[in-house]
Design a binder for these strands. Structure first.
Lengths: 234, 234
DNA sequence: GAATTGTAGATTGTCGACAATTTACTTGAC
DNA sequence: GTCAAGTAAATTGTCGACAATCTACAATTC
C-alpha cells in the first residue's frame, strides 16, 4: 500500500536514479540545441562534465536511444539524432495513429474522474497562457493534456509510446508556442476535443483530434522550415 | 557509398554487440516461460549464467525495459513482467493502431520493390508451413511480413514501435501457431492484405489488416485463457 | 601522386571491486 | 505473542582500469 504519511509536509527527495537524471540532462541539452545534431557524444566527456562515471552515462544514452533522440553504432558510440522535417512529419503521423486510437477508447471508458482531470488541464492551459509568460510551462501543460488522455485510455502501451516520443513532441510544441502571438490560442485548440469527449461522440472526437494534430503538424513543419532556412543563410 | 564487394561470397560476421545478444537470450528465456512472470532477475545470477560481467546485463535489461518485457525498480533491480490477458489485448490494440496507419501509407508509396519483398515473404510463409515443421521458423516468417510492411511505410517510427512490441508479438504468434492444425492457414491469412495492397485500394487494405489483427487477437486471447486455466488447475 | 599498409592515439566494450541500499533475520521490550 | 529496532547478508549502484576496436595520419609501394 502506498499510503502517504499524514501531511508530514516533507517533499519526496531525489528518489530517482542517477541514470534518469543524466538522461534528463542530456535530452535537455539536445533539444535546446546545445549539442549539435549529428555530433558524436563522447562518453568520457559527458561523464567528466557531469562529474560521474561512464557507466550511468552509457545507460542513460541507451535510454535516450529508445526514445529516438540519439542513435548508437557498435564500437563507435552514440550520436545526436538530427530532427529533420521528415522526422517531424513522421512523428506526427505516429501521434495521429496513436491518439486517434486513444480517443476512441476514451469515449468508451469515459468517467467523472477522467472528465475532471482533462477539464482541469484545459483550465490550467488557460491559466498559464494568461498569468505566466514562461513558454516552457505552457509546453509542459500542453503535453500534460495529451498525456492525461493516454493515461485515461487505460492502455499502458499507448502511454508508453507517447512517453517515448515525448521529448520530440515537447520540442515541436515549443515551436508551435513561438508561432502563436496569442498564447490562449493553444488552450482553445484543445477545447473541441474535450467537448466531443464529453458528448461521448466517437466520430466527432476522432475528427477533432485529427484536426488538432494535423494543424499542429502543419505549423511545426512551417516553423521548422523557416528555422532551417535562417540557419543556412546566416 | 555502401558498395558491396563484387560477389566475394562472404557472409557478414556477427557484428552485433554483447548487449544485444544478452538481450535476445533474456527475452527468449522470458517468453518461453523459463523465467517465471514477476520473478526478480538477479544481475549477478544472469551474468554468471551467461559467463559475462554485470554491466552488459544491466544495459540489456534496460533495453528490455523499453520493450516492456521487464520492469525496473530503483535500488531493487529488474523484474520480469507477466503477460496478462489485458496486456495481450492492449498489445493488439496498439498493433491495430500502428498497422492501420502503416497500410495506409503503404498504399501511397507502393512500388515494385515493396511488392517484390512482400510477395516473396508470403511465398516464404507457405514454404515454411509445408517444408519445415519448426514452429519458431514459422513465427519468425510471420513477424517478418509485418516488419516488412512497417519498413515499407517509409516511417522509421512505425518500425521502431513495432520492434518494441516485437517480442510480445512473437510470443503471441507462437500461441496462434499452436492453435492452427493446418500451418498453411497462417500463410493464407496474409494474402488478402497483400491483394488489397497490390490493388492499391486503401479502404480494402485497412479492413483487411483490421480483420487480420482482430482475428489474431481473438485467437491469442482464447488460447492464452486456456493456457492459464490449465496452469491454475494443475 | 594515388592507393595501400602500418602505426599511434583516442574511444568504446567489458570487467572486477567497492559503496550504498535493501532484505531477511534476530533480538529485545511490552 | 506482537511489534519494534537492530544487524548481517545479499543485491544493486557506481566507479576506475584494462582490453578490443576504431580513427587519423604517416610510411611505403607502385
Amino acid at each position: 500500500m502506498t499510503q502517504t504519511q499524514p501531511s508530514s509536509g516533507f517533499q519526496q527527495i531525489d528518489r530517482e536514479g542517477l541514470v534518469q537524471r543524466v538522461a534528463k540532462l542530456l535530452s535537455k541539452a539536445i533539444v535546446s540545441g546545445k549539442l549539435a545534431p549529428g555530433a558524436r557524444l563522447s562518453e568520457s566527456v559527458v561523464a567528466r562534465e557531469l562529474g560521474v562515471s561512464r557507466a550511468p552515462v552509457r545507460e542513460a544514452a541507451r535510454l535516450l536511444e529508445s526514445s529516438g533522440l540519439v542513435r548508437s553504432e557498435p564500437n563507435r558510440g552514440f550520436f545526436v539524432r538530427q530532427v529533420s522535417i521528415k522526422a517531424l512529419n513522421d512523428l506526427y503521423e505516429l501521434r495521429l495513429a496513436i491518439e486517434t486510437a486513444v480517443v476512441e477508447r476514451l469515449v468508451q471508458n469515459w468517467n467523472d474522474e477522467i472528465e475532471e482531470a482533462l477539464s482541469a488541464q484545459v483550465a490550467e492551459l488557460h491559466r498559464v497562457a494568461t498569468e505566466e509568460a514562461d513558454i516552457f510551462t505552457q509546453v509542459e501543460a500542453d503535453m500534460q493534456f495529451h498525456r492525461l488522455m493516454c493515461t485515461g485510455s487505460d492502455n499502458p502501451k499507448f502511454l508508453q509510446v507517447f512517453e517515448q516520443v515525448a521529448i520530440e513532441t515537447e520540442f515541436s510544441i515549443m515551436l508551435i508556442g513561438q508561432l502563436y502571438d496569442d498564447p490562449t490560442r493553444i488552450a482553445e485548440t484543445h477545447e473541441p476535443i474535450l467537448e466531443a469527449l464529453r458528448a461521448r461522440d466517437a466520430t466527432k472526437a476522432v475528427s477533432a483530434i485529427r484536426y488538432h494534430i494535423s494543424e499542429a503538424q502543419r505549423i511545426v513543419i512551417d516553423q521548422f522550415r523557416l528555422l532551417e532556412e535562417g540557419k543556412t543563410s546566416t
